[in-house]
Write a protein that binds this DNA or RNA. Structure first.
Lengths: 183, 183
DNA sequence: GGAACCATGTAAAGTGTTACATGATTTT
DNA sequence: AAAATCATGTAACACTTTACATGGTTCC
């Protein structure tokens, strides 16, 4: 179970609530790692039972009490151990969009084109987000908190995201043209 | 559950056993869709109960009887319906390797480099496989079976795979150099 | 006035992996 | 002699998603 490690990674940067963790993920690792709140809350409880994190409750009015989690020494050890172990296999992903395209030979060309144009929009938006929203956010965060070594990693990962999305967009344009001309 | 649709997609091309389906997936959609045998066998039974497929048993000696599945009219309808529905959201994937890199700020640079070089090997191998194994396999299959429209889709998807792997490899080389020079 | 945000969680259902169980044939 | 291929499946476990439940505040 690797939600654990993702949460430890974020909690190693600063103490946070489950809600904060979800937001952090959505704003950074979203494209290659994500988790839902109903997965995060039980995971944090389990992690506390295992001694990887500890929590403090901050009472609030009109809202549920805020529960701030903090990584423990044991948690930091577990994180380091996990980080030091290299990934030795290619992890196959899942893409419904590609699976559909793969089997779309029997579909009418204009139906395929419609699907591809929807994908093009989505990936173009993501590309813009990575360039105009995430890139400055990483830069700001590094400048503010002075997390230079961490920031270098974030920027590297973001750069891969940008390159992959650019590749995807270029391929979609190519695929659309291919199908348009041969239809 | 989309194992169902993947299986329907393959069975629409020709009748097959569960074992065949697994092999077909491994040889084609593996990078963006996969399933294990212990997922495939129960799925086929469920699909038969739902009337999406039907099966014939071919007795064999020394081996378990071969059970060949064939798509039904209802199965073909379900497949078409699914194919015609466009994918309207970006599906976030999961990459343990990227998640680790994202949190590797505290790791020693040569440890990070070791991880990245392992990844480089894996992705270079995959790139070779796509170019030298999959590309001719697609071409052969199209020539043999004359599945020209399907083949065009397969080739398009393969091309994306190749472009993405090439991008990934280039980025890994860039990341390795970055860390080597700044370490 | 409604949507989105903050903030917690539970329960049920769905999906996927790993281990187990069998056993002949073919390749290394 | 060991490993891989062919060929089927079950059982237990692990993980994820969706729906439910609550309720005040802030933005449009």
């Amino acid at each position: 179970m690797s939600v654990t490690h993702a949460l430890l990674g974020f909690l190693d940067l600063s103490p946070m609530t489950g809600y904060d963790l979800k937001r952090s993920m959505d704003e950074s690792t979203q494209a290659f790692w994500h988790a839902s709140l109903s997965q995060i809350y039980p995971a944090l409880q389990r992690m506390q039972a295992e001694g990887l994190v500890e929590s403090e409750t901050h009472p609030q009015e009109g809202k549920p009490d805020k529960r701030v989690y903090r990584i423990t020494g044991a948690g930091r050890s577990a994180l380091t151990e996990w980080l030091e172990e290299p990934v030795r296999t290619l992890e196959p992903g899942k893409s419904t969009a590609l699976l559909k395209l793969f089997f779309s030979g029997r579909l009418a060309p204009d139906r395929i084109l419609r699907h591809l144009r929807i994908q093009l929009d989505l990936h173009q938006e993501e590309l813009v987000r990575l360039r105009d929203v995430i890139a400055p956010a990483v830069a700001r965060h590094v400048a503010d908190a002075g997390l230079t070594r961490e920031g270098r990693m974030w920027e590297l990962v973001r750069e891969l995201g940008e390159r992959c999305e650019a590749t995807y967009v270029a391929w979609l344009e190519h695929a659309i043209q291919e199908i348009e001309t041969r239809a």
